[in-house]
Amino acid sequence: MVYQSSAQKAEDNQSSGIMLVTVGAIGLIGDIIFLIKNPLDMPMFNKYLSCGVMGALFVLFFVMGILAVRSYKIFKDKATEEGTVIDKIAKWSEQELTYENIEEHMYDDDEVYEKLTDKEDLYFKRSEYIKKRIMRQYVNVSEELIDAFVDDYYEKIFGDEN
């Protein structure tokens, strides 16, 4: 599963909420007009059944839209907190996890002392070391958030090697 930040979730919920509220409101208005005017000259039973089912559907759209907009506010607050944590991790990483530091210490915890030369093996070893150091420093941060940060940070430091 791909990590999705709270900012992305907030944006998705906002756009979904606005769309659902809009469709629900327009649908309810259209349903009421259809119920009153009966432009298709439907028999009474069919008109009430159709309008009832469609009305329930549009009310459901409207309610789900409102819930999505409420979720947007929650995810927006989480995104602010997440951004603060990422900034702290980035500052710490720039000081502690430099290119030289990673290259020098990434084999310290490992029982295998041979130097890796394959780019893929190097990527996994370096990423594992960076992740381990960050998780040791920031214990209560979610692993998915750290994984996303490590991918970006790795590209920032070692991007020109690949």
Score class of each variant (00 low, 15 high):
Arg126His: 12
Val85Tyr: 14
Lys47Trp: 03
Leu35Ile: 00
Val85Arg: 07
Asp109Phe: 09
Lys9Pro: 01
Phe75Gly: 01
Glu114Met: 12
Ile18Leu: 15
Leu67Ile: 08
Asp118Asn: 11
Tyr72Asn: 03
Tyr153Ile: 04
Glu104His: 11
Tyr72Phe: 12
Gln137Asp: 12
Gly159Arg: 03
Lys9Tyr: 06
Gly65Arg: 03
Asp41Asn: 12
Gln4Gly: 00
Ala90Gln: 04
Leu60Cys: 15
Ala148Tyr: 08
Ala7Asp: 14
Gly159Ala: 04
Phe158Gly: 03
Glu120Thr: 12
Val2Asp: 15
Glu111Tyr: 13
Lys91Arg: 13
Ile157Arg: 01
Met42Pro: 00
Leu20Ile: 01
Glu128Gly: 13
Asn140Lys: 14
Ile89Pro: 04
Asp118Trp: 08
Phe45Gly: 02
Lys156Asn: 01
Val112Ala: 15
Met54Leu: 15
Thr84Gln: 10
Phe149His: 05
Gly27Gln: 04
Glu81Met: 11
Leu116Trp: 06
Glu111Cys: 10
Phe75Asn: 07
Asp118Tyr: 10
Ile102Met: 13
Lys9Met: 03
Glu155Asp: 12
Ile146Arg: 00
Trp92Pro: 05
Lys73Leu: 14
Leu145Tyr: 02
Asn101Pro: 05
Ile89Lys: 04
Leu20Gln: 08
Thr98Tyr: 11
Asp160Pro: 00
Met19Gly: 00
Met44His: 13
Leu122Ile: 10
Tyr154Asn: 01
Pro39Met: 00
Ser16Met: 15
Leu97Gln: 01
Asn162Ile: 13
Val23Tyr: 10
Ile32Pro: 02
Thr84Arg: 07
Ser15Arg: 10
Tyr107Phe: 10
Glu120Gln: 13
Leu67Lys: 08
Tyr107Arg: 10
Glu155Thr: 09
Ile102Thr: 06
Glu82Ser: 02
Cys51Met: 02
Glu81Lys: 10
Lys156Trp: 11
Met64Pro: 01
Ile29Lys: 09
Glu161Asn: 10
Val53Gln: 00
Tyr154Glu: 04
Phe61Ile: 09
Trp92Glu: 03
Leu57Met: 13
Asp147Pro: 00
Gly30Trp: 09
Leu20Met: 14
Val69Arg: 07
Tyr138Asn: 04
Arg133Tyr: 15
Leu116His: 04
Phe61Trp: 07
Leu49Asn: 05
Val53Trp: 01
Met54Glu: 12
Asn46Glu: 04
Asn13Ile: 10
